[in-house]
Computed example of a mutant assay.
Amino acid sequence: METPPNDEGNPPDGRGEPRSDRWSDLDRPPLNAVGLRRALVREGSLWSQVNVVRSTGSTNADLVALADAGKAEEGLILLAEEQTAGRGRLDRQWTAPARSGLFLSVLLKPTQVPVARWGWLPLLTGVAVATGLSRAAGIDTSLKWPNDLLVTVDGAERKAGGILAERSGTDAVVIGIGINVTLREDELPVPTAGSLALAGAVGTDRDPLLRAVLRSLEQWYVRWRSVEGDPASSGLQETYAAGCATLGRTVRAELPGDRSVVGEAVAVDGDGRLVLATGEGVQEPVGAGDVVHLRPATP
C-alpha cells in the first residue's frame, strides 16, 4: 500500500523521513489553506470556497469539469501547489517547479452581463492581478495584450504570468491564473520568462500575494458586473489601457491562414480588441481569439 504524505506534503522515504525532492525546498513553503479560507470566504464575499490540491494536471481543466457536472458554484477557487499539464492561450504549455508560483482557477457566473462583453474578463483579470501584485509585492507590472503579465528584470521586460479564460456551459467562465513567484534564473523555461523574485519583489510569501490578487479581482469583477459589463463606465477600459505595455508599439499580429497585420497599437476598443494603425492609414482591430502570435515588428 502506498505510504500517505506527511504533514509537510512530502512522501516519506522507506525510513519514514521526508525525501529530499521538489517538495522539500524550505524557501517554498506550502500554502495555508485554512488561513486562506478564513481570509477570503466571508459573509457577502464573492468567494464561496477555497480548495488546495497538492498536484494536478490543470486547475482550469479540473474546474471546467466540475462546472460542467454542476458541482461548482460561483466563487469557487481551485489552487494547485503543482501543475503538470498547465496550459496557456491556444493550448500552449505552462510549466513551473512545485510551489514556485500561484497556479489557480476561479469560477465566475456573470449572468447580469451581456455575453458579448464576457471577452473583457481576461483583461479585467489582468488589471486585477497587476494591481494586486503591485501593492503586495512592491514591483512595477504591466500587461501585454491580451493576457500576459510583465515584470522588469535587469532592465528587460519578461513574462511572469498569464491568464486563460474558458467557457463552461451557457452561464459560467473559468479564469485560470499562473504567476511565477520564486522561479530562479536556472529554472526559467525560456530566457524571456521572469518571476516576482527576479524582479525584486519585497516579499514572495504566496499567501499574502494570493489574498491581494483575489481581493483585487473581486473588487474589479463586482464593479464591472454592477454596470452590466460596460468597460467604460466601470473604468476598466481606461485602466487597462494605462497599464498596457503593448500600446504605442509597432507590432505584428499573426492571424490564422498565414495572414498578418503590422501597425502601431493605438487603442483597446470597447470590445477589448487591439486597434492597429497600419502603414496604409487604416485602423484595424484584432481580437484575442483571432491572434496566433503578437510580436514586436522587425524593421
Rank of each mutant, 00 (worst) to 15 (best):
T56G: 11
G86T: 06
G281W: 13
A165V: 11
T152E: 14
R211Q: 15
G169L: 03
P122F: 09
V213T: 14
P11H: 13
S20I: 15
T192W: 14
D269I: 08
V151P: 08
A67T: 11
V50G: 05
L31K: 12
T125K: 04
E254P: 02
A172M: 07
I163L: 15
Y221M: 03
A277S: 15
E81V: 05
E43P: 02
R22C: 06
P191C: 02
V173P: 00
E157S: 05
P122T: 05
Q49L: 12
A33C: 05
A197G: 09
S142W: 03
E82T: 03
V106E: 01
D269N: 15
W224V: 13
V53Y: 04
T182G: 08
L209M: 07
G9S: 10
V53H: 04
P11V: 12
R89F: 01
R22G: 14
I77S: 03
G14T: 09
A80N: 07
V151Y: 05
G281P: 13
M1S: 10
P110C: 01
A65T: 05
N6M: 13
R295P: 08
V262Y: 09
V262E: 14
R259H: 08
Q83R: 07
R28T: 07
Q93C: 00
V261N: 02
S216E: 08
L40W: 08
T3H: 14
A197S: 14
L121A: 02
P110Q: 01
R215L: 12
A156N: 12
L133I: 13
L217C: 03
D207V: 08
V34C: 00
P97L: 05
G289C: 01
I175R: 12
D7M: 06
T56S: 03
G257L: 12
L102G: 05
E254K: 06
G248M: 04
Q93V: 13
G263L: 10
L236D: 06
T192D: 15
P299F: 02
